[in-house]
Design a protein around this nucleic acid. Sequence first.
DNA 1: GGTACTACCTGGAGGC
DNA 2: TGCCTCCAGGTAGTAC
Length: 289
Amino acid sequence: MPELPEVETVRIGLNENTLGWQIEGGEVLLPRAIAYPENSEAFLAAVIGAEFTEWQRRGKYLIAQLSQGDRLGVHLRMTGSLLWYDRDTAVGKHTRVRLFLKEKRKGKKEKKVGLKELRFDDQRTFGKVWWVPSHQPTESIITGLQNLGLEPFDPEFTSDHLAAKFSRTGRPIKTVLLDQETVAGIGNIYADESLFLGKIHPQKAANSLSLEQVISLRLGIIRSLSDGIAKGGTTFSSFQNVAGLKGNYINTAWVFRRTGQPCNVCGTLISRIKLGGRSTHFCSQCQSL
DNA sequence: GGTACTACCTGGAGGC
DNA sequence: TGCCTCCAGGTAGTAC
């Protein structure tokens, strides 16, 4: 379940590995993984010849800047991975898109010095890949970017900003945190962890939070996401970084998937409820309603 | 406009 | 062992 820390971990790995590599071919094994253009052939025709110059992240979206001014967008959704392989690595059962790369070195003559492959694997096939032509804004193609909220590490992501967002809705705070228009990048794992760190019950109405609670929640969001990044993300079933390594955050999670286990702070058994159709984990003692 | 619900999808777990 | 059902969850679309 890649959320902001997992996507950021992937972004770092992609910037370490793919820059300066040129796409010389590819293969789309699952056409519906390509969100734009509409068919796989057009997608491959568009990206072949391009070179990766930088990978950026916006919320849970990865966006590659390509040498010709185009962009390549990727959303891993639930089970997607971008993996950096040697070209001769056997194709996996869940491989959806392959991009064949050659390394270019600058000099009098560019010469081929390596053959690698950037592979998009996705077990549940919810992930998407976009190609964005240079003359179009990224948001016009990747429409999910249009209404994204602030990044949690943005200087403008203040308690006042959050309080203003929360004041507009009486929905449960957990549901509001999962809404990408509130904060970009939070998913089910870090919503539960942030609420625990902020000592706020997930069912509490967003517009009923005091300013003190908003301040506490903001710090909880930043802390949980920072810890997640520091530990290379969370792994339950499928997340792995570009090198195929799993994250370690779950080993230190406060509440997520710890139903029935004692709270690390007070010893109360961790509870689990359904909220907005999602599993929600919390400590009934530490988190006040 | 705000909110709640559903579909999408696959593999693992559990029950029989 | 094999079959069936349920569950997991990010996002877009739909209904109210």
